[in-house]
């Protein structure tokens, strides 16, 4: 059984394997620095009839690709865990409904992929399931419609804003030997620094990221030097710098191996994406493509993956609510 080794941290006694991953991305993401790592690049406007239907199809495709790579049948999956950013997490639900298997829908905004990994790892270690599928997606245009303004309005985005990544990532979690494994994880707590600017989510999420990273380090008695890569989910340029400052103020200054999926997925100098990428599909697709491939080819052997999520809703924002944030850490070893 898993063992609690810190206030928020769990170490798995029998490491759980990430057997396979699949990633699907849109045009803009395909044009970015990680374009060659994605399994499939699709037309984000016409892959499905609508933006939402496109996202559903991309979500389902990521799972399908992950299953195909290990020649697994969907019947071998005991539990599907998935989420996205749409109301009632419909992208995950509609995508997974076609498999007709047990399903847990989850939501922790852009940290949903890490939450799904933690649930799958715990379930497998507890012997409740032998093999799980985890999948998460987001779509620029469906998210604009849901959280901001309709595309037709042509609103200008603020300089601090980020671009929601149109992508999905799916992973098959099981017990096979030889694959990268989840060795421990830290479940984040909700951190609210009373940030209210929904055009600057990176800054709102940075304290949660720093808190979870430090909590994980203390519980596992590790530090940046013990990892090849410590990567947050979607802080992007501005939030990443805030996180670096927060870590520096706690004494973590030698952090050359610290990065962020929102910074990796786009070339912020060449692409018109504000501070960088965001969205649930950002960390999911970067992990399921770039990071997993580097782990699989042994170019990386110790990774701390820390997706970050902003937990507000359009309703709470209209009511001048703050932006509560969360970050979940998953430690992966090769």
């Amino acid at each position: 059984m898993a063992k609690k080794i810190g206030p928020q941290t769990v170490k798995l006694r029998t490491p759980v394997a990430i057997e396979s991953t699949g990633s699907v991305a849109g045009t803009m993401e395909g044009l970015g620095p990680l374009g060659s790592y994605f399994d499939l690049i699709v037309d984000e406007d016409n892959f499905g009839d609508t933006f939402e239907k496109t996202e559903i199809k991309m979500h389902s495709k990521a799972i399908e690709i992950a299953l195909q790579k290990i020649e697994a049948e969907s019947d071998s999956i005991d539990l599907f865990v998935g989420g996205d950013l749409l109301n009632q997490i419909v992208a995950a639900t509609f995508a997974i409904s076609e498999y007709s298997r047990p399903y847990w829908g989850v939501y922790s905004a852009c940290a949903s992929f890490a939450e799904s990994l933690q649930i799958a790892a715990t379930t497998i270690e507890a012997g409740v399931a032998e093999r799980c599928s985890v999948s998460v997606s987001s779509h620029f245009s469906s998210v604009e419609r849901q959280y901001r303004t309709p595309l037709e309005q042509g609103s200008q985005s603020a300089i601090t804003s980020q671009r929601t990544v149109t992508a999905s990532g799916g992973a098959i979690i099981g017990q096979s030997k030889g694959a990268p494994t989840i060795v421990s994880f830290t479940t984040g707590k909700i951190v609210d620094f009373d940030c209210c600017d929904i055009a600057d989510m990176g800054t709102a999420m940075a304290p949660a990221a720093a808190h979870t990273i430090i909590t994980h380090f203390l519980a596992t008695k590790t530090s940046f030097k013990d990892y090849d890569l410590v990567v947050t989910g979607d802080l992007a340029n501005l939030g990443f710098n805030v996180a670096k400052d927060l870590l520096a103020s706690e004494g973590y200054v030698d952090i050359g191996n610290f990065s962020d999926c929102g910074k990796l997925v786009f070339d912020t100098d060449a692409q018109n994406v504000g501070q960088g990428g965001s969205g649930a599909g950002c960390s999911a697709s970067v992990f399921c493509s770039y990071i997993y491939k580097l782990l699989d080819s042994k170019q990386l052997s110790r990774v701390l993956f820390v997706p970050t999520g902003a937990l507000m809703s359009p309703l709470t924002s209209f009511q001048d609510g703050s932006i509560p944030a969360i970050a979940h850490a998953v430690q992966i070893a090769r």
Partner: peptide
């Protein structure tokens, strides 16, 4: 306008 054109994702 809405019946003849479709919004597109900004690239």
């Amino acid at each position: 306008a809405s019946s003849v054109v479709k919004p597109k994702t900004k690239i």
